[in-house]
């Protein structure tokens, strides 16, 4: 008995956490077995097992892969562009007070606005293909990266910069030896936030005027009352987000063993 209690107290964290999720799934699965749903409601209802079946079916028919491929391309291109522009711009804004003052109004304004409002405009300019989605992913993901890089550069120890300077380092060397290593953690945090925004951009971008991609698949399924297909999409997006977020979190905690956990932010 005591061994059992010990076993429980040692792993209470995982048992309670995993147990709760398991319980929810079982409860969800057993709802139609316990109560007879009215016809109108059963139209919107699905169970985890049905979602799984549908997922398997779509997988066999090669449908999920095709949509996933389009979504993944949009995600990677947009995020790549965001890194390409966000990091250098953040570094420049952090190092030059004139640039900082000149770009700040735009960064503040665009960061406060939900970037998806630009979607109709981007569709008008870039058409219904993947490029309007790539752009929406890009403008979603670029600001967390830019702002975090900026904060990282701003928080660099002045003394270190001055020491390297007085030993004759130029701006490039200061950047390489002091600024970049010190803002690495901030950049990684920015990357995590950017990944979340990028996935959001893919989802929403495809809801609205797209024929290919997981978001388009979900929007079409929802209007045809294929609720299980919608949940397949939700589950895929969830899984991808979790994998990315947890991976970057791992890197983060490697970089900050000494730091207590701050507020969760996604």
């Amino acid at each position: 008995m005591t061994r059992l209690v010990n076993f429980y107290t040692e792993r209470e964290h995982y048992i309670l956490g995993g147990g709760f999720i398991l319980l929810l799934i079982i409860a969800w699965e057993s709802v139609p077995h316990l109560v007879a749903l009215p016809r109108a409601l059963s139209l919107f209802f699905t169970t985890p097992s049905k979602v799984w079946e549908t997922f398997y079916e779509l997988l066999v028919r090669n449908e999920v892969q095709a949509h996933f491929y389009v979504s993944a391309t949009e995600f990677l291109l947009g995020l790549g562009l965001a890194i390409l522009f966000g990091l250098p711009l953040g570094l420049i804004m952090g190092r030059s007070s004139v640039m900082d003052a000149m770009f700040d109004p735009y960064v503040t304004a665009l960061n406060a606005t939900p970037r998806i409002v630009f979607l109709p405009l981007l569709i008008l300019w870039l058409g219904l293909g993947i490029w309007s989605k790539v752009m929406i992913v890009f403008i979603g993901a670029v600001f967390p990266l830019l702002i975090n890089t900026y904060e990282g550069v701003k928080n660099v120890d002045r003394v270190l910069v001055n020491v390297v300077r007085s030993f004759g380092a130029n701006e490039w060397q200061v950047m390489k030896m002091v600024v970049l290593p010190n803002s690495l953690l901030y950049i990684v945090v920015g990357l995590r936030l950017a990944i979340g925004r990028a996935i959001l951009g893919v989802v929403v971008g495809e809801f609205y005027g797209a024929t290919k991609g997981l978001g388009a698949m979900m929007a079409r399924a929802a209007s045809a009352y294929q609720v299980d297909v919608v949940f397949v999409g939700v589950a895929i997006f969830m899984a991808v987000s979790l994998i990315f977020t947890l991976t970057v979190k791992k890197i983060e905690s490697k970089l900050t063993r000494w730091r207590p956990e701050a507020v969760k932010s996604f």
Binding site: L200, V203, F207, A222, V230, V234, L242
Partner: peptide, 16 residues
């Protein structure tokens, strides 16, 4: 898990 996942993905379903 819910916080990390893009819950907007549920939008079409919620509207339906």
């Amino acid at each position: 898990a819910l916080y990390a996942s893009p819950l907007v993905a549920l939008a079409p379903l919620i509207i339906v």
